[in-house]
């Protein structure tokens, strides 16, 4: 199981700004290790963000997203104390879900 995401969700005016830092190697499958063997591609493919069970963002990622991915975006309609839940799934079908409370 991967390390938890770091999620911040802050109310700015009438929008909620979400910032998330995920812990993932994001291997492209193009890099060789020291012994010359290709490190297989291993990366987060989909990300879903929900606010009180309503989807506010879905993303699909290629291998070009940097290691330990960062993402930020804003949505309208959040209130302090509401929950923002983020789930990612990688190409090993491993996944991780974390929740933050809007501050």
């Amino acid at each position: 199981m991967a390390d938890p995401m770091k999620i911040r969700a802050n109310l700015v005016g009438d929008s909620t700004e979400v910032k998330v830092l995920m812990s993932h190697e994001m291997d492209t499958g193009l890099v060789k290790d020291k012994s010359g063997k290709i490190i297989p591609a291993w990366w987060i493919q989909t990300v879903k963000v929900t606010h009180n069970d309503k989807v506010v963002l879905t993303a699909q990622w290629g291998t070009a997203v940097s290691k330990n991915p960062f993402m930020s975006f804003k949505f309208k309609g959040g209130a302090k104390g509401d929950k923002v839940t983020i789930t990612w799934v990688d190409n090993h079908n491993d996944s991780r879900t974390d929740t933050a409370v809007i501050a």
Binding site: K54, V55, G62, A64, S72
Partner: peptide, 26 residues
Amino acid sequence: KNPFTLAALFDLPAGTEPTISTRVKM
């Protein structure tokens, strides 16, 4: 000029602002 052209694709439901930031490899 990346090996795979598409880096990321974000779908925005109504109510989500069209402003996204992330980090990519080049």
